[in-house]
């Protein structure tokens, strides 16, 4: 029983690691304070689910979910090309509200607030993943691959240009770099991995509805990247464990389930304020949030 519970937490941690390191790519390395990251997560989850129910092969669904999220990432980069700082943050937050409105109102496609239930777990190379243990291995393999790729990107020459755009856009421009294109690629890549995390989430929980992809769900992810420290991938992973596990004892204190949800949000809000005040660079952060 206990071990089943830990496997559940580890799967969530795996999914959140993908989400957080992909957001780190945009916020930490790219300097784009993207509060709409959760909408790519949602788009990925919905595209995956809808395609799967139309009988498309798992791997094709999986990749298409990533690519459609990446497409929206690219589009949002076009939208925010003139903005910075807190304005950018609010407009990207707006994307998450628009996505939510579309998911909840386009009932023919998404079944609206009812959500889509009974999403089957994939069968991979002959292995069924109905067993949570098997699914955990799958999630961690995908998380490791994502980590590998994002690490590769940020340490590549391209990654250095991304950081240069964050630190001084005008200098980067004067060196002949197309900063707009770099932002597009950055956000699209970040969204791609968020979309993939969305697939993993949908097929793990086997149920999705628009309320899983709202503004309040973006707070833990933002918290993870701030606690982990901007532009630090190992810090992000450490922070993911910390943030997912920290509110868990609330379950055992004996609160009713209607209290546990808000209580967890309160814990997150307080940690957010404390960290921002006392340690705005988090565990391993290399720079301040501008």
């Amino acid at each position: 029983m206990i071990s089943a519970y830990f496997i559940h937490l580890l799967i969530l941690i795996g999914i959140y690691i993908i989400l957080a390191i992909s957001l780190q790519l945009a916020v930490g390395y790219g300097g784009l304070l993207n509060l709409g990251h959760i909408s790519y997560f949602g788009i990925g989850a919905y595209v995956y689910t809808i395609l799967l129910f139309h009988g498309v092969n798992f791997w094709i669904c999986f990749l298409l979910a990533g690519f459609s999220a990446a497409f929206f990432g690219w589009m949002s980069a076009i939208g925010i090309r003139k903005l910075k700082g807190d304005y950018l943050a609010l407009v990207t937050l707006g994307f998450s509200f628009v996505t939510y409105a579309v998911l909840i109102n386009w009932t023919e496609l998404t079944r609206g607030p009812l959500g889509i239930a009974g999403i089957p777990r994939p069968v991979l190379f002959g292995f069924g993943t109905n067993e949570n243990m098997v699914y955990l291995v799958f999630v961690f393999v995908i998380a490791a691959i994502s980590y590998f790729f994002i690490n590769k990107i940020v340490s590549s020459p391209f990654g250095k240009v991304v950081e240069a755009v964050r630190d001084d856009e005008i200098s980067a421009k004067s060196l002949g770099k197309s900063t707009f294109k770099i932002k597009c690629i950055n956000l699209a890549t970040s969204a791609f991995f968020a979309g993939i995390a969305g697939c993993l989430y949908a097929s793990y929980i086997t149920f999705i509805d628009p309320s899983s992809f709202t503004f309040s769900n973006v707070i833990p992810i933002i918290l993870i990247i701030i606690i982990g420290g901007l532009a630090s991938l190992p810090g992000t992973i450490l922070a993911t464990f910390f943030i997912i596990l920290l509110p868990e004892p609330l379950r055992f204190i004996g609160f009713s389930s209607s209290i546990v949800g808000p209580a967890r949000q309160i814990v997150y809000a307080l940690i957010l304020l404390i960290v921002l005040y006392y340690k705005p660079r988090g565990f391993y952060g290399k720079l301040d949030l501008e």
């Binding site: 700082g85 609010l90 309160i266």
Partner: peptide, 23 residues
Amino acid sequence: ASNSILLIASFGVLIFLESMLLI
């Protein structure tokens, strides 16, 4: 603190207030 930090802090306050009301 920069504007972005204050913005995120204000999200923290908003979430805190809403959750208190929920409880």
